Simulated scan of single mutants.
Amino acid sequence: MLDEFNLSSREPPFDPLSAILFKVLQVTAFLFFIAFLALSQMKDTGKIDTKAEFFISMTWPDNHPDDFDLFVQDPLGNVVWYRRRDIGFLSLERDNRGGANNFITVDGEKILSASRQELVSIRGIVAGEYTVNVYHFSAHTGLPVPVTVTVEKLNPHVSIIAKETLDMAKDRFERTAVRFTLDSKGEVVSKTHVDRSILQSFFDPTANGATMSKYGYQQ
């Protein structure tokens, strides 16, 4: 009779253990989703961001066909360039070949990039002098190209310690953008623009783990 008047519940009796287990399952699924997103981001970027003390960027006009290379040498003699992307605290974050096969990948599709930029990070402090050079690997227009090199100190706040624009007109030509000296605390104590060749260090056939055939030098 009670069923005819809807006076009794047709739902099963409440089970508190089942409710707790369901909530635990929800939380576990949520944490798994967050972890999946983090792993996906790492896969897309290809690397985990690390702390940097300095960024050194080199830019030239968008869509320009010429190829420039950024060379940075630390006080220990380590040189970072496109054949040695990581050495000591130096990392070449971005290599750019100008009009030669300069692509970026967007949603799995390769797209020709108009930007012209190379980027080096310094992830730790070594006291002494750093040399930042620009090398004009290939010139196609025969006209001077303005190449801007910027050195930024990131900690404790971002500040520009050097910004120089060089007119580069000849291929196989190297120029010094800036040389700066750090103390043991990472403070810049001096700067100069006196030319100093980094390529000379490559006359040693064991240096940097590669030949300089790209630059016309042989072992």
Rank of each mutant, 00 (worst) to 15 (best):
D3T: 07
F5H: 04
P12F: 04
D15E: 12
K23A: 14
L31R: 10
F32K: 14
F36E: 13
L37H: 02
M42N: 10
D44E: 14
I56V: 12
I56L: 03
S57H: 07
P61I: 14
D66E: 14
V72S: 07
D74F: 07
V79I: 15
V80W: 07
W81I: 13
W81P: 00
Y82Q: 04
R85V: 01
L90Y: 05
E93W: 01
R94W: 00
N96W: 06
N96S: 03
R97H: 06
G99N: 03
G99C: 04
V106R: 10
E109W: 02
K110E: 14
S113K: 06
Q117A: 08
E118L: 03
L119P: 07
I122G: 00
G124N: 11
Y130D: 10
N133L: 02
N133G: 03
F137P: 08
F137G: 04
H140V: 11
P144W: 00
P146V: 08
V147T: 15
T148D: 03
V151K: 07
E152K: 11
K153Y: 03
N155Y: 06
H157S: 14
S159P: 10
S159E: 03
A162I: 11
A162L: 11
K163Y: 04
L166S: 03
L166R: 10
R172L: 03
T176R: 10
A177M: 06
T181V: 11
L182G: 09
G186N: 01
E187M: 01
V189N: 10
H193K: 09
Q200C: 00
F202G: 10
F203T: 06
D204C: 05
M212L: 08
G216M: 00
Q218V: 02
Q219Y: 01
